[in-house]
Structures are given as structure tokens and as C-alpha cells.
Design a protein around this nucleic acid. Structure first.
Lengths: 347, 347
DNA sequence: TTGTAGGCGTTATCAC
DNA sequence: GTGATAACGCCTACAA
């Protein structure tokens, strides 16, 4: 009782394989009567074309590979994933998904597996690390590739990222305008362990952009103090780092966090100390989530256009796949500072 | 410059296709010298086996299809997705992903596409609707299938769900013990439009289980008032429904919500009315999220074992695929009531 | 130990 | 308008 093949359809309809194929795929010359007979036969025996065989012949799989760094827990990446999957489906493509937990080794393996499965193209969020030769060799073999969320200077591929710098700068301006003079930035990065105030050697471009924006904002002011903490992505470290900020004798009046997890750590630490967000201490973070709006006060946030990014990633990739154009684009999408109640007015 | 094939490796190494294949796959008798020669040649020309051709021959794809209802936004489904993808990878399988937005039509199309792509098995969260014949025909054709989060009475397939009823009942008990006498349950279901207090005809089994638990808890008490609101899944309706509860002259002292989105709606409405959670009004919800713990007060929650569920789904599916056993299991995983500060002590 | 050859299910080219 | 046939890349039974 194996699955029926085109051969079965052909014999059921009393025609040849070739005719059956033509009838079902609707190409070439063929009489309408035969077409309906074949279709009826196919229906009757429950024929489902074997996409593997089709791919084998066509050399295309109508599948794209998605290699994402982590945790669908992260608002940005889970919404991006949904957007990519849905857009791809609408365009007739399916998505094979991998996550790497920010581990280049897993990333490399994922790319190899996807290459072997002959996906038509790849969307990758590269992990924060050195050693992306596997991506370079993809571009060399002309495999359609779109890199999202981060750019990788060494890799000549289309990238789609967001302009976090300008909104981070705007956020600083906004806080300063409200009278804040002591700011702190709490940055999560997989490239440190524990926490530290020095800027790490290696940052991914998304984080770097936020750092730069913050820096630009603070440096253009006089009499501003800006503190930094870079920490790894474990919840414990985040809490320690947030506590360090809040317990300092010179507590910053506003804390910027680089992602939702860090914002949560700050919320926890602040609550434990009976401080009130938007009054005793202020908070701004990156990547909007329904939670940031649901809680009170709402958290001011730098919104990134995740749906647009997801759609663009797929359409640009499909364009590469279907036209085999090798144009490399570097797309930077605008971000937006959305003001809610989490920055106190000190003026 | 097409991708090198086994033939290319063979000629590069000066052997036949068969020998090259044996050398690379390591089977049959073959001299070590030939093996290393072939491997060197493969390496040199950058040979990557074509998994499509392998699948074609083997009749297996080492791919599983995941059809999930919606929104990776939902904590439960995004963590489940991650668990499934990671477990599958560890077992040597890749995951083709679809989401249906609770639409049976899309679900049906997804299953057809996945069948045509000859996935070795499927993990499905069936949408809340009638008409799952496509799943029944899957079981008839012996396609390995695991249904998660919900059971579908008509479909003879392994299912993995969670025992929400008992924790919902425990949550009611707990609230009653703290002195609550007027409870309300705010339930999101795609099967209504707008909101209503009557129990809808059609509920998915997960929601039904929560309803039953709540009912069991309230009915065993005397002098308890229990209100219901069933509403669709749009944020607007959720807000209206939550407002209706909070603005009622007979405001419940504790609100149970069926998911995180509804909990967020309650939080918003409550904040707008300057009420304090855990004091003026109480809240309990289903499915833990880092946010429920990060905010103040933490929200008491019914935790479902999502990681365990994800792992089980994959291992049970793989067991079906690799042993072609057709044993149907109905697995119910325990849940846990985690108490935080969101239920006021009225006693 | 290695080579030859057939077939997995499709599609498309070439005859008739 | 339809049928026979080759080819996609791989694996493996069989032959040498």
C-alpha cells in the first residue's frame, strides 16, 4: 500500500505516464476529455504528487532555510519567524527552520544540512562570533542568501537591518530633555561572561548600533554622566547587573536596556527595592512587545519594524532565487521611538 | 558550475560511482586507501551529497512537519516550537514549519503540502473548528502523527496534552481559601466573535479543560458567584470584555484568564481604573512567561510543562516513524499552580 | 575489492 | 493528441 504514483494514475486512467503528467500539470497539447479522465483517476486513487521527485527533476525545492540565532522567546525573533513563514507560504515556499542559540558551530552545521537538502535560498541571523566562512562560501557558490538583523562586513550578501542608532540617540535626547543627567545602558551580549563596564571587543552590529546611538546622544551633551554595563544573556547575570546599577550610591536616573530580557531584570530589581518606574527611576528598552504596553506604566521603547523586515527578507530572497540576480543590497529600515510613561519628567 | 555530484567525485578519484558512494557512506568492503583517496577528492571539489536524491531513493526525508495554530507571539507555542526544533535536530531531523492562524483551511493546505513533500511525520496543533478529515486520512495512510495541546476525539492519533483542569480547580480552591466569593473567567476562543457570557458550542479541548476545572472548583462551593465571558482573540474585544468585568457594579474579586493575551487586557484595564492587582482585584492566568514573574506583583499562574511536551512530541513521533508501530497513546502531562502575589488575601 | 546497471517518481523531448 | 524514453543523483544487488 505504498503511495500511488503517476504510474498508478496512468494505468487507472488507461493512458501513459506522459499523458497523465500533462493532464495533471496542464501543459502541452492534450484533449480535454483525457484531462478530466486522468484527473478523475488521480482523485479516485488518492494521488498526491511526490514533491521530492519533482525537486529532483527540477533542481528546485521551493523551500527556504531559516537559521535564526535563538530563542523564539525573544519578541523580535519570534515575530520575525512568523512573518517569514507566512510570507513564504503566500509566495509558495516552505520554511525549514533551525536555531543556533548563538553558537557558530551549530550555525555552520545548520547551513551544511540546509545546503545538502538543497534549499533554494537562506535567511540567516548570524551568530555573534568570528568565523563565518561558511556564509562566504555560500555567496561564492551563488546560493541566494539574505542576512537579517545584523550585518557581517566580510560577507557579500544582501542584508536587512534596522537603524537602531538614530532611535537610541533620540531616546537619549528625550531623556535629557526631561532633565535626566545620569544615564546608564545595560547591554546584553553573548560575547562576555558575567558583566563588565568595558566595551567588549566583539559586538554584533545590531548591538553596536545601539551602543553608538547612545554614545552619540550622550557625548553631544555637557555635564552628562553615562554608565555602561555589558553582560551575558543569563537571567542571573542580568539581575546582578541591574542590581549593581540600582544599588550604586550614584544611581542613574534612567536605564536603557538593549532587549526585553534586560528590561525585565530591571523591572524585577526595581520592584524589590520598592522603587517606582517612571518616578523614582526611568526605563527605556528596545523591541516592542505587547507586555511593554500592557504593564503600568507602559515602557518607552525603540520599535523596530519586524514585520516589514520579515517580508522584505523573503521577497528579496525570492527575487534572488527566481531571477538569479546577484545584486547585493544593504537595507536599513527606520526605527521609531515610542513614548510611554516610563521616563520620569525631572524638569 | 553546477554542484558536484557523486559522479564528479568518482572521476576525480579515478574510481566508479559505486566505489565513491561506498567510500563516503562507509559500507561494504573497500580498501582504506581508496576511502581516503575518495574522501580527499570529495573534499577537494567541495562535494555535498544531494539529500533530495538520497530521499528519493530511500523513501525518507528525515524531515518532520510542524503545523502550529498561530502566532509565535503566544508563549506556549513559541516555546513549544523551539523545543520541537531543537529536539528534532538532536535526533537528526529537520522541521518544516507552518502556521495556520487557527484556520482549518490553511491547516488542510499545510497538511497537503507537507504530505507532498513527503515528510516522515507530522506534529499538529489542530485548529479549533470542525472538519479535520485531512487528519483522519493521515492516520488511514499510516502517516506518523502526533497531536499536541489539544485532543481531537475523531482522530485516532497519539496526543500529548496537559491537565489544565486540575490546576484550574486548584486555582479556584486557592482563591476561595483566601476569601474570594465572586470569581470571573475570561476565556479567549476563536469560535466566537465579539464576546458573550454563554458557553460557545465549540471549544477546543484545551480551553474546555480549563472551563471544566474552573466549573468543578466553583460548583463544589456554596455561596460562590461565578461569571463567564468568552471572547474572540482580538486585542480590542479582550479590552472590552475586561472592561465589562471591571466596570460591573458587581465587580468580581478575582479574574481568571485563559491565556497571556487576556491577562494583558485585564492588566491594562485595571491600570486605567487605578486599581491595584493583588489588592483591589486579583488575577490568575494560564501559561507562564518571564513577564508574569518580572512585573510587580508577579502573576499567579498555571504552568504547563511545555519543554517536556515538545520533547515528548518529537520522541513519540520519531518512535512511530522508525519502528512503524501504530500504537496510539493519549498522554496527559501534569500542570502546576505557581503562586505569586496577584491574588489578594481577603480573609 | 571494485565496477555495472537498474530504479526511486517526475517531467520534457522527441517521435508517431 | 499521445506514447516511449531519457535524465535528475543516489544507493545497492549482482556480477566480475
Amino acid at each position: 500500500m505504498a503511495k500511488p504514483t503517476l504510474n498508478d494514475v496512468a494505468s487507472a486512467a488507461g493512458v501513459s505516464r506522459a499523458t497523465a503528467s500533462r493532464a495533471l500539470s496542464g501543459y502541452g497539447r492534450i484533449s480535454p476529455i483525457t484531462v478530466s479522465a486522468v484527473k478523475a483517476a488521480a482523485e479516485k486513487i488518492g494521488y498526491q504528487p511526490n514533491a521530492i521527485a519533482q525537486s529532483m527533476r527540477a533542481g528546485k525545492t521551493r523551500t527556504i532555510g531559516l537559521v535564526i540565532i535563538t530563542d523564539f522567546t525573544n519578541v523580535f525573533f519570534n515575530r520575525a519567524t512568523k512573518g517569514i513563514v507566512d510570507t513564504a507560504r503566500a509566495m509558495g515556499y516552505q520554511v525549514l527552520i533551525f536555531n543556533t542559540n548563538e553558537d557558530v558551530v551549530l550555525e555552520r552545521e545548520a547551513i551544511i544540512t540546509l545546503t545538502q537538502k538543497r534549499v533554494d535560498g537562506l535567511i540567516v541571523v548570524p551568530s555573534t562570533a568570528e568565523g563565518h566562512e561558511h556564509l562566504i562560501s555560500l555567496t561564492k557558490s551563488r546560493t541566494p542568501l539574505v542576512i537579517i538583523d545584523r550585518v557581517l562586513p566580510g560577507v557579500k550578501a544582501t542584508s536587512i537591518t534596522t537603524d537602531d542608532a538614530s532611535s537610541c540617540e533620540a531616546a537619549v535626547d528625550s531623556a535629557v530633555a526631561l532633565g535626566h543627567r545620569h544615564l546608564a545602558f545595560l547591554v546584553a551580549t553573548p560575547t562576555v561572561s558575567g558583566y563588565q563596564s568595558d566595551v567588549p571587543q566583539l559586538l554584533n552590529s545590531a548591538i553596536e548600533s545601539r551602543v553608538k546611538g547612545f554614545l552619540a546622544g550622550t557625548q553631544k551633551q555637557k555635564k552628562i554622566r553615562a554608565d555602561w554595563i555589558f553582560c551575558d544573556e543569563s537571567p542571573e547575570t542580568a539581575l546582578e547587573a541591574a542590581a549593581k546599577l540600582c544599588d550604586s550610591p550614584m544611581r542613574p536616573s534612567v536605564i536603557f536596556t538593549s532587549n526585553n530580557d534586560m528590561a525585565q531584570a530591571v523591572l524585577k530589581v526595581v520592584a524589590e527595592r520598592d522603587l517606582i518606574i517612571g518616578k523614582d527611576i526611568s526605563l527605556v528598552t528596545v523591541d516592542d512587545s505587547t507586555w511593554l504596553e500592557a504593564i503600568y506604566p507602559g515602557i518607552t521603547v525603540i520599535q523596530r519594524p519586524v514585520d516589514e523586515l520579515a517580508q522584505l527578507a523573503v521577497t528579496k530572497l525570492v527575487a534572488q532565487m527566481e531571477t538569479s540576480s546577484k545584486r547585493v543590497e544593504t537595507i536599513l529600515l527606520p526605527t521609531k521611538l515610542v513614548t510611554r510613561g516610563s521616563i520620569a519628567d525631572l524638569s
